[in-house]
């Protein structure tokens, strides 16, 4: 269950990265994606409540995941001491990575919750300018930068362990699977950090340029053809 909720969250986060990075393709592309989530392409007009609902689902999933994960963490002082003694002594890569996951998971519980609650409460505040204003003028870039790093380290490590948890089929392939999955996970994390970093920078740039006009929403100009529904 923990694995499954983790898997769904990982898939969500990775997909999310592609959607938000649509800003790299331009404001219109990002607006199109925003409209897609608001149901504009289906219903003809935006229903930001859909975004709230999606955020709620993710939030619940997150809460479930965190709740399940909590059972595995040291609960008593003895357990806490044992795991820290163990970590200090063994210097074992996979165990250390797990500990990094514990720390990032703990951070994520707050960072991701903050992000999700904001989306739930202000579902309509997503858009090329709205988002950028929040990031720059609203100083949300600090949250997002932290979130970006923690979530990807956490998700990448989770992905690796999920594969090793269920994947190995034969003794001969286990070592190779482990090696390849580790490489792949590092590559994926790197990729999303670059993608996310670039997107964040773009939002920050737009936000900076738009700082005087905070509150104004983006209206597509010569790209109306993109918004087929309107």
């Amino acid at each position: 269950m923990q694995g499954l909720s983790g898997l769904l969250l990982v898939l969500f986060v990775w997909a999310h990265m592609f959607f938000e990075s649509s800003i790299l393709l331009g404001k219109d592309a990002m607006l199109w994606v925003t409209h897609m989530f608001e149901g504009v392409h289906v219903f003809g007009e935006p229903y930001p409540q859909l975004v709230s609902a999606a955020a709620l689902v993710v939030f619940l999933l997150l809460a479930l995941h965190a709740g399940l994960a909590l059972r595995r963490l040291p609960a008593r002082a003895r357990e806490y001491r044992a795991i820290h003694t163990h970590l200090r002594s063994i210097h074992h890569a996979d165990t250390t990575v797990w500990y990094v996951q514990v720390v990032t998971g703990f951070a994520l519980f707050f960072l991701a919750s903050a992000h999700l609650i904001q989306v739930m409460l202000q579902p309509d505040a997503i858009g090329p300018y709205a988002s950028s204003d929040r990031i720059w003028s609203g100083r949300f870039w600090i949250l997002y930068a932290l979130l970006l790093i923690t979530v990807h380290v956490h998700a990448g490590a989770g992905f690796y362990r999920l594969v090793m948890k269920w994947g190995p089929l034969t003794a001969a392939n286990a070592a190779a699977l482990r090696r390849r999955t580790r490489t792949l996970a590092i590559f994926i994390v790197g990729f999303f950090l670059l993608l996310g970093g670039a997107s964040l920078a773009t939002y920050m740039k737009i936000g900076y340029e738009h700082r005087a006009l905070v509150g104004e929403r983006y209206v597509p100009g010569s790209h109306a053809d993109l918004n087929g529904g309107e």
Binding site: R72, H92, D94, K165
Partner: peptide, 12 residues
């Protein structure tokens, strides 16, 4: 289901 796949067992 308690195993967290830290793989210390495999490595040592």
């Amino acid at each position: 289901f308690g195993c967290m796949t830290l793989l210390g067992c495999e490595d040592y």
